[in-house]
Design a protein around this nucleic acid. Structure first.
Lengths: 285, 285
DNA sequence: ATAAATTTGGAATATAAATTCCGAATTGAC
DNA sequence: GTCAATTCGGAATTTATATTCCAAATTTAT
C-alpha cells in the first residue's frame, strides 16, 4: 500500500510533475531509492517498456525496490508508476482513457461532460497524431498534383461529404475550378466521364467505404486522372489506386469520428493549392 | 510455433517493413486476421502499450487471433510481434511538448510545411481554447432544448454549411428527426414556416454573417421556436435572439478558419441528444 | 451437395511479471 | 558501542498475461 507519509497527497499525474517533485523538492530518499529514481528519470523509455525485473537489473536494484519507490510517491504500485512513463510516449493526452472511465465511474454526475470532453479529447489527439504522422513531402506533392490540375473533382459520400462541401466552399472563394461528384440525382458517373488526365481528383473515404466513392475513383483512375486520397487505413481500397494518399487516424469517440483533423488537412490543402497557382502565374517556366 | 508457410523467411524487423509486407504484398489473410492486422497498423500505439486482452477487445477479436497473426508473419508469438511496435516508439522519443517546439522552431523551412503546421496549430489551439471556455451547463441545456424538440431545424450557409451537412449525417445515423434549411431552390423560407414551438433550431453562423441565415433564424424565433446558436462573437446578431448560444473562437490561419473545434462541438451535441432521448425513453417522468 | 480443409471462439493451461513479506543488513540516535 | 528504526535483498506468493488446444463454424474444393 502507498507510503503513509504521503497520505492525502495525490501522486504526480504526469512525467513532468514527477520529475519536478524529484529534482525540485529535494525529497530525501534512501540510497537505493534515490538510485532507482535517478535511473528512472534518466531512462524514462526503459521504464515505459521494460518489466520490473529488467529495469531492476539495469538500475542495479531489486524489483521490490521499484515497488517501494512507486509507493514512496503515492502510486499504487510499480505498474501504476509505469503508466506515467507510458503516457509520456503516447501522443494522446495524458490518461485520457482513465479520465473518461473515472468520469463514468463517478456515477452519472455529468454524463454530458464526459461526452464533451470525449469528443474534444478525440479531436485533439487526432490533430496531434496526424500532424506528427504526415510527411511534408507528401503534402507538397499533393499540392503539386492538385495545383497542376485543370479541374479538381471532389469525391466523397456520407460521412466525408461534409468535408468536400467545405472544400468546395473554400475552392470557390479561392477561385479554384472544381466539380463535386455528389449529386442527388444520380448523374455522378456521367460527371466523372468528363474528367481528363489534365484534371485531378481528391477522394475522401473512411471505413466503411461507400461503394459509389470507390466506383467513381476507379473510373477516374481508369481514365488516367491523378488521384489524391484521404482515407483511414492502408487497407483502404482507395490506397491502391491513388497517386498519393494520406492516412488520417481520426480518433473516434462513442463510435463517431469527428473529422477535425481531416478538416485541418483539407483546409491546408486548399490554401496550398491557391498559393501554388499564384506562384506559377508569377513565375511561369 | 511460427506458421509453416513462412519457413525460412525471417519476420519483418521493424514496423515499416511489417506495414509494407501487409499493404504491398497483398498477403491473403482470412477475415479475422485481416481485421486484426488492420487494427494493428492503424493503432500502432495501442499495440505497443496494450495487453493482448485489451487489444483484442479493441479490435473485436480474440487474444488467440493476435497470437495467430504474429505467427502468420513468422514471429514467435504476440510478445515478439509487440516488440516491433515498442521499438517504433523508442526510436522517436521526444515528448509531445518537445516536438511541438521543434516544429515551431523549424519555422520557414518550406512554405508548404508552414501552411500545414499553421492550419494544424490553429486547429489545435481552437480545440484547446474552446474546451476550456465552454460551460458544461450550457452544453447540458443545449442538449435538453434540442433533445426535447420534435424536429430540429438546421440553419447554416456558406462556410458553416459543411458543419450542418455533417450534423445531418450524424442525425440520420442516430435517428434524430431534422430538417436542413439549405435548399438550392429557394424554398427555405417556406420550409421554416412549418416549424412549431415544439420543434427547435440550431443555427451556425460566423462573421460575416449570411443574411439568409439570420432571416431564417429570426422567422423561427418569431414563431416561438427555441433556438440554439453557434457563433463567433457576443455581437453576433444571432446571440440576441437565441435561447442559448455558444461562442466558438476558431483560430484562423491565412484568413481561413478551420472549423475543427465547431466540428467537435456539433458531434458532441448530436450524440448528446441521442443519449438524452434514450434516457427519456427508458425513464419517462 | 458433400467432404475436406481452414478458420475461429473461448476455455484451459502455461508463463511471466508484480507484489508481498520477512530476516538480514545498514543507518542513526544516544 | 548498543539499541531501535529504517532500509534492503531475495525468496514466496499472488496476480496478470500470453499461449495452447480443441470443438464448432465457416469456407473451399470436388
Amino acid at each position: 500500500m502507498p507510503d503513509i507519509s504521503e497520505t492525502g497527497a495525490l501522486p504526480p499525474a504526469d512525467f513532468e510533475s514527477l520529475k519536478a517533485q524529484v529534482v525540485g523538492n529535494h525529497v530525501k530518499l534512501p540510497k537505493r531509492l534515490k538510485q532507482a529514481a535517478a535511473y528512472a528519470l534518466d531512462n524514462p523509455d526503459e521504464i515505459a517498456f521494460g518489466t520490473a525485473a529488467s529495469i531492476a537489473q539495469a538500475a542495479s536494484v531489486q524489483p521490490s525496490t521499484l515497488v517501494r519507490l512507486a509507493h514512496q510517491f503515492g502510486y499504487e504500485g510499480f505498474s501504476h508508476f509505469q503508466t506515467i512513463f507510458k503516457e509520456r510516449l503516447r501522443l494522446r493526452t495524458p490518461s485520457y482513457e482513465e479520465r473518461l472511465t473515472q468520469i463514468e465511474k463517478s456515477g452519472d454526475a455529468a454524463p454530458e461532460a464526459a461526452l464533451l470532453h470525449g469528443f474534444f479529447g478525440a479531436a485533439r489527439s487526432s490533430i496531434i497524431k496526424m500532424e506528427e504522422a504526415i510527411r511534408e513531402e507528401d503534402f507538397k506533392r499533393a499540392i503539386e498534383v492538385l495545383g497542376a490540375a485543370d479541374t479538381i473533382y471532389l469525391i466523397a459520400k456520407r460521412r466525408s461529404y461534409s468535408l468536400t462541401a467545405h472544400l468546395a466552399y473554400a475552392f470557390s472563394k479561392l477561385g479554384i475550378r472544381h466539380q463535386m461528384v455528389a449529386s442527388t440525382n444520380g448523374v455522378d458517373m456521367e460527371t466523372v466521364q468528363f474528367a481528363r488526365p489534365s484534371d485531378a481528383a481528391l477522394a475522401i473515404s473512411f471505413s466503411p467505404y461507400a461503394a459509389e466513392s470507390l466506383e467513381h475513383a476507379r473510373a477516374l483512375h481508369a481514365q488516367g486522372v491523378p488521384l489524391v486520397s484521404i482515407t483511414d487505413s492502408a487497407f483502404s481500397p482507395l490506397a491502391s489506386i491513388s497517386t498519393l494518399w494520406f492516412e488520417v487516424a481520426e480518433a473516434d469517440f462513442a463510435g463517431f469520428r469527428s473529422l477535425s483533423a481531416s478538416m485541418a488537412l483539407t483546409m491546408a490543402l486548399s490554401v496550398g493549392i491557391a498559393e501554388y497557382r499564384r506562384h506559377q502565374q508569377n513565375e511561369p517556366e
